[in-house]
Amino acid sequence: MSRIRTPVVTGWFTGRGGGFRLLGTRCSACASVFFPREDAFCRNPGCPGGELEEVPLSKRGRVWSYTDSRYRPPPPYVSDPELVWRPCVLAAVELPAERLVVLGQTVPGVGVADLAVGMEVEAVPGVLNEDARTTWTTWHWRPVRDGTAAGTGAAP
């Protein structure tokens, strides 16, 4: 029986392949952007309060910092205790248009030696874990290997 692909958290990302994007919300009154999404209220203390509308975030950003987890994280992180732990890599990525930093795991196969602060990466669909019935999907950061694309960011 095939597993059903289900986002591990609802409404934080959308799309497949090249159309994959993180989703945030934007306040109609002050234009503040929120990720993870705020749907109830704008958190800008100087804002009278507007409607919060869903917006896709920049697909690409630059690495603010990175690290890895050499030891198995505790629950609710899901990992198979029967398998040898393989360190997962985390990158904090600054999105140029939104001017915010989003943490995420990198795509499998990328180690800390492959990353550098300032490197361009892009958000791609990924799998967090699988159980009997479900493939839990998430976002991953993937280094942009195409040198010609590196200069096309939305802001300086």
């Binding site: 503040s32 929120f34 990720f35 910092s65 904090a92 915010l100 930093v101």
Partner: peptide, 16 residues
Amino acid sequence: TVLDLPDIATDSAAAV
């Protein structure tokens, strides 16, 4: 604007 525990993202500095 500095990523802080336990957050997954910072606030956006685009509007303010």
